[in-house]
Structure formats: C-alpha cells, structure tokens
Amino acid sequence: SEEEIREAFRVFDKDGNGYISAADLRHVMTNLGEKLTDEEVDEMIREADIDGDGQVNYEDFVQMMTA
C-alpha cells in the first residue's frame, strides 16, 4: 500500500531530508545485517535513482518498490 511504501521510505531516509543517500542506505542495510561494499551501495543507488541526481527521492523509491 502507499502508506507502507511511505513508511519504508521514512526508515531509509535517516536524516528526514526527503532523499535516501548512499549513507542512509548503507546504514539501513548494515542494521539488517547486510555487509555491503561501497561499490555495492553505490550500484543500488544508481539503479534506484531514476532522475539521475545521485540520491533516491520519494518518487524514485515508489517506482523501485512497485516495479
């Protein structure tokens, strides 16, 4: 549901600035027990970053979650 997606976005957007940065993503993945290299984190950001601004905004996140 849209509310679940919004809630998930809030979990990833640690600093609440409306964007998921590589640092935000790394933090959440580490908490989930996933040890990722910087390259892996950057690749995840690139794949999710639809508009190419280097971070994942809510619209990018929705597209990723509903793809």
Score class of each variant (00 low, 15 high):
residue 3 E to L: 09
residue 50 I to M: 10
residue 58 Y to S: 01
residue 14 K to L: 13
residue 58 Y to V: 13
residue 37 T to M: 05
residue 7 E to V: 05
residue 35 K to T: 09
residue 66 T to I: 13
residue 27 H to A: 11
residue 63 Q to Y: 11
residue 38 D to R: 11
residue 54 G to V: 04
residue 55 Q to S: 07
residue 18 G to R: 02
residue 57 N to W: 15
residue 45 I to E: 01
residue 49 D to W: 09
residue 48 A to T: 06
residue 49 D to N: 14
residue 57 N to P: 09
residue 38 D to F: 08
residue 47 E to M: 15
residue 6 R to Y: 09
residue 34 E to W: 15
residue 22 A to F: 13
residue 57 N to F: 14
residue 8 A to N: 03
residue 66 T to A: 12
residue 45 I to G: 01
residue 62 V to I: 15
residue 35 K to C: 12
residue 29 M to P: 00
residue 49 D to I: 12
residue 3 E to W: 14
residue 28 V to A: 10
residue 42 D to F: 10
residue 22 A to N: 06
residue 41 V to K: 04
residue 7 E to H: 09
residue 53 D to A: 11
residue 43 E to R: 15
residue 55 Q to H: 10
residue 9 F to R: 00
residue 39 E to A: 12
residue 32 L to C: 05
residue 26 R to M: 05
residue 59 E to V: 06
residue 8 A to C: 06
residue 9 F to H: 00
residue 2 E to Y: 12
residue 64 M to S: 05
residue 10 R to Y: 03
residue 50 I to K: 14
residue 62 V to P: 01
residue 53 D to F: 11
residue 5 I to A: 03
residue 3 E to G: 07
residue 29 M to A: 03
residue 16 G to W: 03
residue 13 D to C: 02
residue 49 D to V: 12
residue 1 S to W: 14
residue 59 E to Q: 05
residue 33 G to A: 10
residue 43 E to H: 14
residue 27 H to F: 13
residue 28 V to N: 00
residue 7 E to A: 14
residue 36 L to H: 07
residue 43 E to F: 14
residue 5 I to Q: 02
residue 8 A to G: 03
residue 36 L to P: 04
residue 51 D to S: 13
residue 20 I to W: 00
residue 44 M to Y: 06
residue 10 R to I: 03
residue 45 I to M: 13
residue 22 A to Q: 09
residue 44 M to A: 04
residue 12 F to I: 03
residue 14 K to A: 08
residue 41 V to E: 02
residue 62 V to W: 06
residue 62 V to F: 07
residue 54 G to K: 04
residue 61 F to C: 03
residue 28 V to E: 00
residue 3 E to F: 11
residue 51 D to M: 11
residue 17 N to P: 00
residue 36 L to D: 01
residue 60 D to I: 15
residue 6 R to T: 03
residue 14 K to C: 06
residue 48 A to V: 10
residue 4 E to Q: 11
residue 51 D to N: 14
residue 41 V to Y: 13
residue 33 G to P: 07
residue 59 E to A: 06
residue 27 H to Y: 14
residue 60 D to K: 15
residue 11 V to D: 03
residue 31 N to H: 13
residue 61 F to N: 00
residue 31 N to P: 01
residue 21 S to C: 07
residue 30 T to F: 13
residue 64 M to I: 09
residue 47 E to G: 15
residue 27 H to D: 06
residue 50 I to E: 05
residue 10 R to V: 03
residue 51 D to I: 11
residue 21 S to Q: 06
residue 63 Q to D: 05
residue 30 T to L: 15
residue 64 M to L: 11
residue 56 V to C: 03
residue 33 G to M: 12
residue 67 A to C: 11
residue 17 N to M: 08
residue 54 G to W: 04
residue 58 Y to W: 12
residue 2 E to D: 07
residue 16 G to L: 07
residue 3 E to C: 13
residue 61 F to A: 02
residue 14 K to R: 12
residue 15 D to G: 07
residue 24 D to M: 08
residue 49 D to P: 06
residue 58 Y to E: 06
residue 34 E to K: 15
residue 12 F to L: 04
residue 61 F to S: 00
residue 25 L to S: 02
residue 60 D to S: 15
residue 58 Y to A: 02
residue 24 D to S: 06
residue 59 E to N: 10
residue 12 F to S: 01
residue 36 L to F: 14
residue 61 F to H: 00
residue 49 D to L: 11
residue 54 G to A: 05
residue 4 E to I: 10
residue 51 D to G: 12
residue 46 R to V: 04
residue 40 E to N: 04
residue 33 G to L: 13
residue 34 E to M: 15
residue 46 R to P: 02
residue 53 D to I: 10
residue 30 T to I: 11
residue 46 R to G: 06
residue 2 E to C: 14
residue 43 E to W: 15
residue 55 Q to T: 06
residue 9 F to V: 01
residue 35 K to Q: 09
residue 52 G to S: 11
residue 1 S to D: 06
residue 4 E to N: 07
residue 25 L to H: 00
residue 23 A to G: 08
residue 42 D to C: 08
residue 29 M to S: 01
residue 59 E to Y: 08
residue 60 D to R: 15
residue 47 E to Y: 15
residue 21 S to V: 03
residue 27 H to I: 12
residue 67 A to E: 08
residue 27 H to N: 10
residue 55 Q to E: 06
residue 58 Y to N: 00
residue 47 E to H: 15
residue 24 D to V: 05
residue 41 V to W: 14
residue 28 V to P: 00
residue 10 R to A: 07
residue 31 N to W: 15
residue 57 N to T: 07
residue 18 G to E: 01
residue 44 M to P: 00
residue 35 K to D: 07
residue 22 A to L: 15
residue 20 I to L: 03
residue 58 Y to Q: 02
residue 62 V to H: 03
residue 26 R to H: 06
residue 39 E to R: 12
residue 22 A to C: 08
residue 35 K to G: 12
residue 33 G to K: 14
residue 27 H to G: 05
residue 3 E to I: 09
residue 63 Q to F: 11
residue 50 I to Q: 10
residue 33 G to Y: 14
residue 51 D to A: 12
residue 29 M to W: 04
residue 23 A to Y: 05
residue 61 F to E: 00
residue 20 I to N: 00
residue 12 F to E: 01
residue 49 D to K: 15
residue 59 E to C: 05
residue 1 S to R: 13
residue 67 A to V: 08
residue 41 V to I: 12
residue 28 V to I: 09
residue 11 V to K: 13
residue 36 L to R: 09
residue 62 V to C: 02
residue 60 D to G: 12
residue 48 A to G: 06
residue 34 E to T: 15
residue 50 I to C: 07
residue 32 L to G: 02
residue 42 D to E: 13
residue 8 A to H: 06
residue 15 D to N: 14
residue 46 R to I: 04
residue 24 D to K: 04
residue 66 T to F: 14
residue 56 V to F: 08
residue 30 T to M: 14
residue 21 S to P: 06
residue 57 N to V: 06
residue 26 R to W: 07
residue 24 D to T: 05
residue 51 D to F: 10
residue 49 D to C: 12
residue 13 D to M: 02
residue 39 E to D: 10
residue 20 I to Q: 00
residue 21 S to W: 06
residue 19 Y to Q: 05
residue 28 V to T: 03
residue 56 V to G: 01
residue 61 F to W: 06
residue 23 A to S: 08
residue 34 E to L: 15
residue 42 D to S: 10
residue 53 D to E: 12
residue 14 K to S: 08
residue 54 G to F: 04
residue 58 Y to T: 02
residue 46 R to H: 06
residue 27 H to M: 12
residue 22 A to I: 15
residue 65 M to T: 02
residue 23 A to F: 05
residue 64 M to K: 14
residue 51 D to K: 12
residue 39 E to K: 12
residue 15 D to V: 07
residue 23 A to W: 04
residue 34 E to S: 15
residue 63 Q to H: 13
residue 53 D to H: 10
residue 35 K to R: 13
residue 65 M to N: 01
residue 43 E to G: 11
residue 25 L to G: 01
residue 15 D to E: 12
residue 36 L to G: 02
residue 65 M to Y: 06
residue 37 T to A: 05
residue 44 M to F: 08
residue 51 D to Q: 10
residue 24 D to R: 03
residue 28 V to L: 07
residue 32 L to K: 03
residue 57 N to C: 14
residue 43 E to M: 14
residue 16 G to Y: 04
residue 42 D to N: 12
residue 17 N to R: 10
residue 40 E to P: 02
residue 3 E to M: 10
residue 19 Y to R: 11
residue 56 V to P: 01
residue 7 E to Y: 06
residue 2 E to W: 15
residue 55 Q to N: 14
residue 16 G to V: 03
residue 48 A to I: 12
residue 37 T to I: 04
residue 64 M to Y: 09
residue 4 E to D: 08
residue 21 S to L: 09
residue 66 T to L: 14
residue 44 M to D: 01
residue 2 E to H: 09
residue 67 A to I: 08
residue 63 Q to L: 11
residue 3 E to S: 10
residue 65 M to Q: 02
residue 1 S to G: 07
residue 61 F to M: 07
residue 15 D to W: 08
residue 19 Y to M: 11
residue 56 V to Q: 00
residue 48 A to M: 12
residue 4 E to Y: 12
residue 40 E to A: 11
residue 38 D to P: 13
residue 52 G to N: 09
residue 43 E to K: 15
residue 8 A to S: 05
residue 33 G to N: 14
residue 5 I to T: 03
residue 15 D to S: 08
